[in-house]
Amino acid sequence: MNWIDRYVAEIKRYLPAKNRDDVAEELQSLLEEEVLELEADRERPLTDAEWHDLLREFGHPMQVATRYGASGVLISAALFPLYRKVVGYLLAAVAMVYVLAITWSIVADVIWGVMADARAVNLGFGFGEAWSFAVNWLVFITLGFHLADRYVTDAGILKRWNPASLPPAQLERESLSSSILVSILVAVWLVILHRLSPEFSAAVLLGEQNNRFITLIAWLKIQAVLVLAVYLMLLFKPHWSRGKRMLVMVSDALAAFGIAICLSIPAEALLQIYPELPEALLRTTSIVLWLWLLGLLADLLVQGYRLMQRR
């Protein structure tokens, strides 16, 4: 019975602990029964080749264990389409950001003559980092889905869905490619802003440091985070709902408020921090900020008008 022992021992390796011994004992007895029957028919012991045929017909140990309930589901069929979508976006985003970073580093190399690789690494998008970022997030996403899966299954969320939550068909749709592109651009913008000035506090936001530059960046970061959130939502629900429009308006309003704070800081204060700043550039900052503010306010008016019309 050496072959049966070896076969059953191998199956046991894949069986869940709770019924491992019980299933193994039963399999052992069933296989012995089969072999006895075959040997009685042939009136001789089975040859090694016949043993192999018998076990091959019974199935690979891993397959047999799976049939006995050793298989688990990492992500159920119900959530898998969403999981595949999220993983697809993640990989596409990482690949695109990497390509953008490389392109940017080449452009930087041509324009400023700095080392292309150094630029890419400075931005935090070297290949190794991009790869580990993708793998780390793949793990987090998979674990998240695995945990959510149990919750969704146990709570019967998909059975209790409300058809009233379906978005109206006439809602403006955002194409997938533009959502991905904008999300990536905004994410890169956010990283660049953070690299330019990592400072972020109430004092910075309120301009108490008398530095237009870092106050502006802090407010732009808030705007970028909100816009990024909207476009990430659009990846999953590609309709411009009232809530998403409002969120974009809030982000614009916050940026406008931030620019207003910047304008309240005297431009000359920048000279104390950056003495080498040319005076022409100093004057330009105020003009740019005013134009920016007016642009944002005009955009807010247009968006508000559109929102009122869609009610």
């Binding site: 039963e26 069933l30 029964e33 089969e34 017909e57 199935g59 047999v64 006995y68």
Partner: peptide
């Protein structure tokens, strides 16, 4: 029935079924 005898019975009744399917 026990596993093997059940398989024999089904076979005798006209249903050939693999052990790897029936027992699990």
């Amino acid at each position: 029935h026990y596993g093997y005898s059940l398989r024999q019975k089904l076979q005798a009744d006209g249903l050939a079924i693999e052990e790897g399917t029936l027992y699990p």
